[in-house]
Every structure is written in structure tokens, then in C-alpha cells.
């Protein structure tokens, strides 16, 4: 056993410097990194080239791509003009959409982004304040650490700082369900509940709210009209390393896009 490990290590040490030149380095957004790791694994199996994914956060990813410390940068937010330079371009590889959903019996069909945010902060507590019935709102949220909750908090500005840590601003009295299915069951059974689930899991049992008058649909997200959504952006150098370019090609291919859809995100091709 020891001999085998030793041999493997030796082989690893020998080949590591050779592989390094070919290794695609990707760094940035933690949310994109989740799907990127799956993509990387599939690409490695298929093309026998290694990909190194580091989750450092969107801002760090943008900086790394600009400075060339990694071949590709990942961002899960729109990039400001002053963060870009002429050497890198943005490639949207997927979109992540979240639907705010209510019970089918609820007459409220449309809320503004601000109203939803206030409901989750616990500032609006009755449906009558948003032109619904005079009944208390039952706020339903996902558990701490869930990617959907993270994205929802980020987009809806539901974060605050306590002791130097970024924490949730969602009211602690909100009901917590683990998983999209749980949220769906609660909302589908309670006429006064509001919850949020990833757009892919919306079905007939509940109704997805329009936000700012725009219906929650893949098309509206692709057009950029529906706001509880975010793009997954890859930052690529204008003259990319050939191995980086072939990885990007893989992501944009039908195979890569299918993996993205399997992970619950919206494909762009």
C-alpha cells in the first residue's frame, strides 16, 4: 500500500510541472464555483486536462482575471464599467433566477422588489399593506447557508453587518424550510404564505409573483427584465490561453449547458 502511494506521489511530482502549463485556473464567485466545479470535473474526464477552481468571491475573481493571476474569473453579479478594461471580455455562461411565490388563493399577483424586501425584513407584516386581504403575512425562507437564500439576500438587499460579519436581515420570526420542496409544500398549503424558490422548481401548486410588473420566466430573465436573477459571468482575456479557450468552448457547448441546467440554473444557449 505504502509503495503504491509512494509511486503515485512520485508520478504526481513528475507530471505536475508538465501539467501546470496546461492547467486552466479559474477563480471568483463562490456561487459560480459550485457549478464550475461540476463543469471542471466533466471537462477533466472528457478532455483529460486539469482545471483548478478557487472560490474567492466575485470581486476577487474580476481582479484576478484583469491582473492575469488566473486565466478565467467568475462573477455572479453584473460587472461595473470601471472594473473592466480593454483586455478582458464578459461571457455569460448561465443565469440564476429565483421566484417569489405565493399560494394560488392569494389575490396578490404582483409586488415591487422593494415590497418583497420589506416583507422579508419584517417591515410589512400584513397583506392589506400590499393591496391584499387584511391577513398577516406568513414569511417563509430557506435555511442559513443555502445558495438560493444567499442569492436572494444579495439581490434583495437583505444583508446587514453585525460584529464585522455579513449576516442576514431576514426577520428571525420567518418560518424556515429546508429545500425547495419544503417551501413549496408550506406555500401551497397556506393561503397567507410567501416564499422563494429557484425558478426551475416552480410548478402548478403555487403561483410565482411578477416583480415590478415583470413575470418570472426564463425569457424575461434572459432579457434582463426580471430582477430577482443574476448572471453567472466568466471573464476571459481577449487573447486567451488555448486551454482556457477550449474550456470556455466546452461550457458553452450543448454538453456544458446541459450540466448547468442539471444543476438548476438557466442555460443561455
Amino acid at each position: 500500500m505504502k509503495k503504491v502511494i509512494g509511486l503515485l506521489t512520485a508520478v504526481g511530482l513528475l507530471t505536475a510541472p508538465l501539467a501546470n502549463a496546461e492547467t486552466v485556473t479559474v477563480s471568483g464567485s463562490t456561487s459560480v464555483a459550485h457549478v464550475m466545479e461540476v463543469l471542471a470535473e466533466n471537462y477533466q474526464n472528457k478532455a483529460q486536462k486539469s482545471v483548478e477552481v478557487q472560490s474567492t468571491g466575485s470581486s476577487a475573481g474580476i481582479r484576478a482575471a484583469k491582473e492575469g493571476t488566473s486565466m478565467l474569473g467568475m462573477s455572479s453579479r453584473n460587472i461595473k464599467d470601471n472594473e473592466l478594461n480593454s483586455e478582458i471580455k464578459e461571457v455569460v455562461i448561465a443565469r440564476d433566477g429565483i421566484a417569489a411565490a405565493v399560494n394560488k388563493a392569494n389575490p396578490v399577483k404582483d409586488l415591487t422588489q422593494q415590497q418583497i424586501s420589506k416583507i422579508y425584513r419584517g417591515e410589512i407584516t400584513n397583506w392589506s399593506e400590499v393591496s391584499g386581504e387584511a391577513r398577516p403575512i406568513v414569511v417563509v425562507t430557506r435555511e442559513n447557508g443555502s445558495g438560493t437564500r444567499g442569492a436572494f439576500e444579495e439581490i434583495m438587499d437583505l444583508q446587514r453587518t453585525v460584529n464585522g460579519h455579513k449576516v442576514t436581515a431576514i426577520t428571525p420570526t420567518a418560518q424556515v424550510g429546508n429545500g425547495n420542496g419544503m417551501i413549496k409544500t408550506i406555500v401551497a398549503n397556506n393561503p397567507y404564505a410567501i416564499g422563494y424558490i429557484s425558478l426551475g422548481s416552480v410548478d402548478d401548486s403555487l403561483q410565482a409573483l411578477s416583480v415590478n410588473g415583470v413575470a418570472a420566466s426564463d425569457e424575461n430573465i434572459a432579457a434582463g427584465d426580471y430582477h430577482i436573477a443574476r448572471p453567472f459571468i466568466l471573464l476571459v482575456n481577449n487573447k486567451p490561453h488555448p486551454s482556457a479557450q477550449s474550456f470556455v468552448d466546452f461550457i458553452m457547448s450543448n454538453d456544458g449547458q446541459s450540466i448547468i441546467a442539471e444543476q438548476g440554473y438557466i442555460r443561455v444557449q
Binding site: E143, T171, P172, T173, A174, Q175, V176, G177
Partner: peptide, 15 residues
């Protein structure tokens, strides 16, 4: 209900 807030009565969610 699993709300992490201190429950005020038996008719409130708790974790």
C-alpha cells in the same frame, strides 16, 4: 416552522 427567534407563545413557530 423552525424560526430561530425566541418563541412568545405556543402558537408561534420555533426551532
Amino acid at each position: 416552522g423552525n424560526a430561530p427567534a425566541m418563541p412568545g407563545s405556543l402558537l408561534e413557530p420555533a426551532r
